[in-house]
Amino acid sequence: MTKAALSYRHTHRFGIAASAVLLMLAAILVPLPAQAYTPRAHTLQINARAFAFEPGSLSVRRGDTVTLVLEATDTVHGLYVDGYDVNLVAEPGKSATATFVADKEGKFKFRCSVACGALHPFMIGELNVEPNLPFVRALLLTLVGGIGALAFFWK
């Protein structure tokens, strides 16, 4: 390869890398279209037993007011919601309640916070606060990053 071709390739690649990075930034930052939505209030009852939350997945929309009622059916269990810092402890006959506004969208795992046996660390459920924008952005990011990488390494 001649020197000129080499340096062309270099600038060319630099261009690709720079635009990929810019596009990835855009994927993180672009405002995504939001639907008009009037928040609702939910009361969600969750039963906890070793080693399951029933139901294991909850869905609400951003802005909703969520009241979680944790009822334990066999022994003492807790419920800690990642990212919302909600922590409930319930015991059979003593249910626990917490109310919060689901103001962050995305998927938040909730997990048992009181050791309850072998599988306790994996006693996990998830709270989906829709729309799941972080996931959309993550997909955009992988698409842009993936295509950018393809272009960058393509010969």
Partner: peptide, 13 residues
């Protein structure tokens, strides 16, 4: 292990 599907965990255990 990390999913919300308790039956899977219990079966694996």
């Amino acid at each position: 292990l990390l999913g919300p599907w308790a039956a899977l965990k219990e079966t694996a255990y």
